[in-house]
């Protein structure tokens, strides 16, 4: 029963009903209570070739909260983020040496894990906005079309909800069929967020989403994150301490591949337990 059902399901386009056999927890974020641990990182050692990038990182990311990863350049925060949807698979020589990452209790490095399925549920927004050289409409429907969705009305609907969700609808609704590359930097980044939203992931990973944007565009994205937190689990990597303080519920501070401190954002910024954390958040190094 388990093995025969999926191939039928594969052709069904709806994104909300993915797998019938994993009943309660799998049907979506709505069921799991906010604040429960969704992603569980346990003693993770990660290597690029001979270079160890992460040393025994243990961390629990909570459902429908914004978690910020902060730390100086090269501390491993982006690496950890890219581990969460296994984007590091694309880099030659990158490997997890020890430890595991569980999402909903499932080790994502298990051999039977379909990395495609994983990435559908764990979306990602990149440091530099990277819309495809296609129209706005095509950019957003890209993920759904991959899953076989061809119903035009449904696609249009998704385009609208995603763009509204990314607070971009009003700005682009009249030029949905123009190239996504024609938008401004901030708009491009929001388009990328909308593109990620369209596949209805549970987790959205943001890798320094505002580092290439001006303050106004940054403010818009931050506003957007505040809106999205009610529906998605967001993990954001940032260099900007104020941003982490503004948008996140929990903050993890990394240094040289090690997790130094992980706590409520308020605690990290007001009353950090480690001297290194204090030095970093107060701007004395990094």
């Amino acid at each position: 029963m388990v093995t025969s059902a999926p191939s039928l399901m594969e052709t069904r386009p709806s994104a909300s009903v993915r797998h019938p056999t994993v009943a309660a927890p799998a049907t979506g974020a709505a069921v799991a209570p906010a604040g429960a641990t969704l992603v569980d990182i346990d003693q993770l050692d990660f290597f690029y070739g001979a270079l160890q990038a992460l040393h025994g990182v243990t961390l629990g990311i909570e459902n429908r909260k914004v978690t910020a990863f902060i730390g100086p350049s090269g501390c491993g925060k982006s690496t950890l983020l890219r581990c969460l949807n296994r984007m590091n698979d694309l880099i030659d020589g990158a490997r997890v040496a020890k430890g595991m990452i569980k999402i909903r209790g499932i080790d994502i490095h298990r051999p039977d894990v379909d990395v495609i399925e994983l990435r559908k549920r764990v979306g990602m927004v990149f440091q530099k906005s990277n819309p495809f050289p296609k129209s706005i409409h095509e950019n957003i429907t890209y993920g759904l079309k991959l899953q076989g969705q061809t119903n035009k009305a449904r696609l249009d609907e998704v385009v609208e909800t995603s763009l509204r969700g990314a607070a971009l609808w009003d700005e682009v609704k009249d030029r949905l069929h123009t190239s996504g590359l024609g938008l401004s930097g901030g708009q491009q980044q929001r388009l990328c967020i909308a593109r990620a939203l369209a596949v209805e992931p549970e987790v959205i990973l943001m890798d320094e989403p505002c580092s290439a944007l001006d303050p106004v565009a940054t403010a818009k994205i931050e506003e957007l994150i505040q809106e999205l937190r009610t529906r998605f689990t967001i993990v954001i990597v940032t260099h900007n301490m104020q941003q982490a303080a503004r948008v996140s519920d929990k903050t993890a501070f990394f240094y040289l591949g090690k997790l130094i401190e992980y706590a409520d954002t308020r605690t990290i910024f007001m009353n950090p337990a480690h001297a290194q954390t204090e030095a970093y958040v107060s701007g004395r190094f990094g």
Partner: peptide, 16 residues
């Protein structure tokens, strides 16, 4: 519920 089956289960499909 089978332990072999989970939300990220790799499945043979026409696509694959």
């Amino acid at each position: 519920m089978s332990t072999e089956c989970h939300i990220f289960q790799a499945r043979p499909s026409a696509l694959r």
